[in-house]
Amino acid sequence: TAGARPPYWRPDYRRILQELGEERMHSLLMHAGLQAAADEAWPLMFEFIAKTRSDARFVIWLRDANDWARSAWNFFTAPNTWSRGGAYANRFFLLSYGSCRIADSNPKTLAKVYRAHTKAVLEYFHGPTASAALRNRLLVLDFTEQLAGRKLCQFALGNHADCSKHTAL
């Protein structure tokens, strides 16, 4: 009843916010002194964060979906102490990818979810109905490019003099 499903394959954004608690997340975003955030479940709450904090800005790197799926699959099924050969189970995995364990999914499904998530982000910030203000709040950044660090610094801090000392990420 929850999680990424055909035909759209999007992570279950609504359910994730509901389970985390909208009121609690609102309070956290407004009062916890948050300056930067990455990893689950932040990417899955982009619309809520954008509406709650009109000053918040966002970054995304658009990887090749199949490369990402292979990387995620290999990492989460590896026999390391963290993923324990794919035994590691997580509620967010279910709500994001449709299976509690990545090992119960497959790279093709993961790639579909990846494409659906990036599409949802791009539609929201850069789609035809997005305002100019909303457009400027998302930086699409290739993390492998030569000056990725400088660009991210300038996006995060404005034209801060210290940004010139950064080059790659």
């Binding site: 930067a36 990455a38 995304i60 790197w61 998302l138 995060a156």
Partner: peptide, 30 residues
């Protein structure tokens, strides 16, 4: 500082983002 949020899913350089924003002196939740 207005918050900056990385929207890549896991294994899409989340650590690189968190390390870099911490290097910039930002309180980074990872």
């Amino acid at each position: 500082v207005p918050p900056i949020i990385y929207l890549g899913l896991q294994k899409t350089a989340t650590s690189a983002f968190a390390n870099f924003t911490s290097l910039l002196g930002l309180v980074t939740v990872h």
